[in-house]
Each structure stands twice: as C-alpha cells, then as structure tokens.
C-alpha cells in the first residue's frame, strides 16, 4: 500500500529522471490536492501502416492505495480505439480481456482503459524493497500495454 504522499513523492522522482532523460513524462492536474495529480506521456506508434497516439496516464487509486496505469489510443483523425481494437493492437487476441476495462480516470473523470488495480497491491508488496516502487511496478506491467521504460529508470529503484 502507498498513501497519496508517498505516491506523489515517487511520481516527482520519476518525473525528474524523465526530464534528465528527455523522456517526455509530465505531471498534470493539481499536485497540492489529495489524488489531484497524475503522470502523463504521449507515445506515437505505427501499427499496420496507421499512426496511433497512445496517451498513458499513471494515476493514484485512493481505495486500493496503489498506482493505476490507464490509457487511450487515438487515430490521427482524433477518434479513439475501442476495446477490441486495443486488444488487437496490443496483441492480446484470444486472451481474457476483463483485466482491461474502461474506468473513470480519477482526476479527469472520463473513460480510460485501465488495468484493474485489484492485483496491484500484492505486486506492490513484492516491490517493497525498491526505493521507488512506482517505477518498479510501471517497468514490470507497462510492457503488457505497450509501454516500455528505458533501462536508465532502474537507477531510482
């Protein structure tokens, strides 16, 4: 379990490292308010000759006391990919999909595809030796939804 203070501390640390690495993560929202801020990054990617824009957000789940990774994928015309399209792009075809559902973004309160937080807490216990459990968690689960953290991030864990 992480409380909001710890979460925002790890968030700022990751953001500073991202600035050094020119990796593009930004803190958005209101940092002073409990559960008011989140980390965001946009990643363009070519898929079957179409340009897609992945919008990743790392947010805090107050009830579970864990971070959550959520994202939306946009086409160049601004339209959003639906669940089955995301599953195809991410190469999940044929796998159980209910781990990935639309949930309210805790700050924006709009639908985002979200990895359900119910297992995250066990995972966070596993990362308890890390100096930055947020980065440890993100580097482990990010790749399932196409988000790879650079090796340099390991220096803060």
């Amino acid at each position: 379990m992480l409380d909001w203070e710890e979460f925002s501390k790890h968030l700022s640390q990751m953001k500073s490292l991202s600035d050094e690495l020119l990796d593009g993560w930004a803190i958005l929202g209101k940092t002073g308010t409990e559960n008011g801020a989140y980390l965001a990054k946009k990643v363009p990617r070519l898929f079957e000759e179409a340009l897609l824009l992945f919008e990743y957000n790392v947010v805090y789940d107050l009830s579970y006391g864990v971070p959550k990774l959520c994202f939306n994928v946009f086409r160049t015309d601004g339209s959003m990919l639906q669940l089955n399209e995301c599953i195809h792009v991410l190469g999940f075809d044929g796998e159980p999909v209910l781990v990935l559902t639309q949930m309210d973004h805790p700050v924006l309160q709009r639908p985002f595809f979200t990895l359900h937080p119910c297992k995250t807490s066990e995972f966070m216990d596993f990362c308890s030796n890390s100096k930055n459990p947020l980065v440890s968690w993100l580097s482990a689960i990010g790749p399932t939804v196409g988000l790879n953290l650079a090796n340099e991030y390991s220096q803060c864990t």
């Binding site: 939306n72 339209s79 959003m80 639906q82 669940l83 639309q102 709009r110 639908p111």
Partner: peptide
Amino acid sequence: FPETQIFR
C-alpha cells in the same frame, strides 16, 4: 457516440 465522455 461521445466516446471521450461516456463509457461504451
């Protein structure tokens, strides 16, 4: 369909 505002 207002896809950015409501759930599918």
